[in-house]
C-alpha cells in the first residue's frame, strides 16, 4: 500500500487573537490534486485558517506542515509554491491588467520574458486578453476577481488558496469563476477554498470540513455529508400566518426531522411528494410548498441549528 503525503497537514491547530480563539484545535489533511473546502458562516475561523496556511499568520498552537515545511520557519519557501486569492481584491488599480501580473511575477524571481509570456497565457485562461492593456480600476467585480485568480497562478503554484472566491459577485460572474476553477482542478492543481455558499462547496469540493465557532463539526465529501446528516429530500413549507411554530407542532411524526425557521418549516423526508400528500391529508394549507434535494445547507442546519447565510 502506498501512502500519499498530504500537502497540508494540521494537528490541533489553534489561532488566538488576545482572549478570542478564532481557530480552536482543528485537524486537517489536504492531499495532492484535491479540491478541499472550508465551509462555514462568517466568523467560523475559515479565513484565520487560510491565513495560517498562507504562511502570513503564525499559529498560536498545534502543528502545521505545508509541503512538508514549517510555515513559521520556511514562510518564503512555502509561499513561493502557493497561489493566494484573498477575500478582498488587492490589485493595483493604477497599473494595467498585464502589469499587475508581471510585477507580481517578479516577487517570485520570474524573469521578465517568462513573466510576459505567462501573463499572456493566464489572461487567455481567465478571458481577459482584450483588457490586457487597460487599467484595473474600471474593471467589473467579476473581472477583477478573475485577474486576482490569474495573479495567484503566476508562479504555477502547487496549491491555490481561495478565500471566498465568489463572495460579492453576481450569479453570472460566479459561474464564470467556478468554471475556471473547475478547469484548474481538472489540470490537477490542488485547490483549497473557503466559502459560506453551499452550492459553491458542492460544485467545487471533493472533500470539505464544516466549521463553526473555530471547530470542525463534520468532514467528508459533499455527498457523504448529505447522506450522513440529512435525508434525501426536503419539503419547504411556508405558512401565511405570522408564526410558523404553530403549524410545525402539527407536523410531528412526519418525516425524520422538522426544522422551524423564522419564515418557513423544513421537513426532512425520504420521499418529498409523499410527504406533501400527507401534509395535505392533515388539512394543512401552506401558502407555498417546495420539494427539493438535501444540500449542505441542511447539513449545516442539522449540525449547528443555524443557517449558513443569515
Amino acid at each position: 500500500m502506498t501512502t500519499v503525503q498530504p500537502l497540508i497537514r494540521a494537528r490541533g491547530l489553534v489561532k488566538r487573537f488576545g482572549d478570542f480563539t478564532a481557530v480552536d484545535g482543528i485537524d486537517v489533511e489536504v492531499l495532492p490534486g484535491e479540491a478541499f473546502g472550508f465551509l462555514g458562516p462568517n466568523g467560523a475561523g475559515k479565513s484565520s485558517t487560510m491565513r495560517m496556511i498562507g504562511c502570513i499568520s503564525p499559529p498560536s498552537g498545534g502543528e502545521l506542515r505545508i509541503l512538508g515545511m514549517d510555515p513559521v520557519r520556511d514562510g518564503p519557501a512555502i509561499r513561493a509554491r502557493l497561489g493566494v486569492c484573498p477575500q478582498l481584491d488587492n490589485l493595483d488599480p493604477e497599473l494595467t491588467v498585464q502589469e499587475n501580473l508581471t510585477t507580481y511575477a517578479r516577487y517570485f524571481g520570474i524573469p521578465r520574458r517568462v513573466a510576459r509570456e505567462r501573463a499572456r497565457e493566464l489572461l487567455d485562461f481567465v478571458q481577459l486578453t482584450e483588457r490586457a492593456d487597460s487599467k484595473v480600476e474600471p474593471l467589473s467585480g467579476g473581472m477583477k476577481r478573475r485577474l486576482t485568480i490569474a495573479r495567484a497562478l503566476v508562479n504555477e503554484p502547487e496549491i491555490v488558496l481561495l478565500d471566498e472566491p465568489t463572495t460579492g459577485l453576481d450569479p453570472q460572474a460566479r459561474h464564470l469563476v467556478w468554471e475556471r476553477l473547475f478547469r484548474l482542478k481538472q489540470q490537477g492543481v490542488t485547490l483549497v477554498l473557503t466559502t459560506h455558499y453551499m452550492d459553491e462547496a458542492e460544485q467545487l469540493c471533493d472533500r470539505l470540513v464544516v466549521m463553526d465557532g473555530g471547530r470542525i463539526v463534520a468532514e467528508g465529501s459533499p455527498r457523504a455529508l448529505i447522506e450522513r446528516y440529512s435525508t434525501r429530500e426536503v419539503v419547504e413549507l411556508r405558512f401565511a400566518a405570522e408564526s410558523q411554530e404553530a403549524f410545525a407542532g402539527k407536523l410531528d411524526g412526519l418525516g425524520e426531522r422538522v426544522e422551524v425557521l423564522p419564515d418557513r418549516v423544513l421537513l426532512y423526508v425520504a420521499d418529498g411528494d409523499a410527504a406533501v400528500a400527507e401534509v395535505q391529508a392533515l388539512g394543512l394549507t401552506p401558502a407555498n410548498v417546495l420539494v427539493r434535494r438535501s444540500s449542505l445547507e441542511d447539513v449545516f442546519l442539522h449540525l449547528t441549528g443555524r443557517t449558513l447565510v443569515e
Binding site: G54, G75, P76, R79, V84, P86, L91, D92
Partner: peptide, 13 residues
C-alpha cells in the same frame, strides 16, 4: 489598495 498584503502573500519577507 492593500499592496503590502498582496506582497506578503508572495515569497517576500
Amino acid at each position: 489598495v492593500k499592496t503590502y498584503y498582496a506582497q506578503s502573500a508572495a515569497p517576500l519577507r
